Amino acid sequence: MESIVPPLPAVPAGAAPSRAARRARRRWTPARIGLYVFLLGAALFFLLPLYVMIVTSLKSMDEIRQGGIFALPHAPTLAPWRLAWSGVCTGAACDGVRTGFWNSVAITVPSTILTILLGAVNGYALSFWRPRGANLLFGILMAGAFVPVQVMIYPLVRVMALAGIFGSLPAIVLVHLVFGMPVMTLLFRNYYCNVPHELFQAARIDGGGFWRIFLQVMLPMSLPVVVVAAIMQVTGVWNDYILGLVFAGRDNMPMMVQLNNVINTTTGVRQYNVNMAATILTALVPLALYFVSGRWFVRGIAAGAVKG
């Protein structure tokens, strides 16, 4: 007589994998080992210069002259950092890079806020309102993104000199606004193109106008792309050298220009520890911005901020 064996229960499609399956996934295959070796090598490749800069900035000049560029400092000191911040010569004045830091803040904050706001308005208008000649305007803006900065320097110098603002804070802010507008418009236009058009139509039915829909509907849901735009604009403005050198004037010299004066000075003894400390101080703001808002940056990219 045949024995009746009850059928095994079916495993649901979404059930958690068994312990054996999880163990198989964690198995160290040659491909997995090669991937980790590559990632570790890439991380060391990018972090090694930063390590050298940090340890050099904590050494005295006597210890630096002894060699051992990768060696840890025997007697760490913060004197090079204090000198770089408030004592090193950046030209005629010897008050460190702190003046350039606050100049860079004064340039970066309005350049970022104004560029993002105008880029968001342009992207919103080109995505939903479609004014006459919108495609032509968008094409002109995109063409402007590919014009080299060096080509536009002399015409801008002439225009600002005639306007009487050359070498002032409004001049350098206006220049960064002009050069940042095409990319910001592209970011926000592509982001708003992914927003369901029914949302805009519903707001229109409820009586919303251009500014009300933008301020109460579109702008609050634009945080990911705003973070992406802010990171790109702050990084570009903060790390700029040539525009700050030409348009900022002697009283508004940004930090990157003063860092160049510190590094390339040809008088006295070259202080490598002070140079490294000044370089790290100059790079702190972009690095901190990436670390703090990295999660939002990834979300903005995934939401279509940089899709064609």
Score class of each variant (00 low, 15 high):
residue 111 S to E: 00
residue 190 N to Y: 06
residue 177 L to I: 07
residue 262 V to P: 01
residue 234 V to R: 05
residue 217 V to A: 07
residue 112 T to W: 02
residue 159 V to M: 10
residue 54 I to M: 05
residue 217 V to M: 13
residue 15 A to K: 08
residue 78 L to Y: 07
residue 261 N to F: 09
residue 268 G to T: 05
residue 285 V to G: 08
residue 79 A to E: 14
residue 160 M to N: 10
residue 42 A to W: 15
residue 271 Q to W: 07
residue 241 Y to Q: 11
residue 83 L to R: 15
residue 60 S to P: 08
residue 273 N to F: 06
residue 79 A to Y: 11
residue 96 G to Q: 03
residue 260 N to D: 13
residue 241 Y to P: 04
residue 99 T to S: 09
residue 57 S to M: 03
residue 30 P to D: 12
residue 217 V to E: 10
residue 200 F to C: 01
residue 82 R to G: 11
residue 221 M to V: 14
residue 305 A to T: 02
residue 266 T to P: 06
residue 122 N to H: 12
residue 76 P to D: 08
residue 193 C to D: 14
residue 156 L to V: 07
residue 280 I to C: 01
residue 161 A to E: 15
residue 259 L to C: 01
residue 63 E to S: 10
residue 175 V to I: 09
residue 237 V to Q: 04
residue 197 H to C: 02
residue 118 L to A: 10
residue 188 F to P: 00
residue 95 D to F: 12
residue 86 S to W: 09
residue 29 T to E: 11
residue 87 G to T: 08
residue 273 N to K: 08
residue 260 N to C: 11
residue 278 A to K: 02
residue 247 F to Q: 11
residue 282 T to Y: 14
residue 259 L to I: 01
residue 136 L to F: 09
residue 206 D to I: 01
residue 174 L to T: 06
residue 62 D to P: 11
residue 243 L to D: 02
residue 128 F to T: 01
residue 26 R to P: 06
residue 93 A to Y: 06
residue 127 S to A: 00
residue 293 S to R: 05
residue 83 L to I: 15
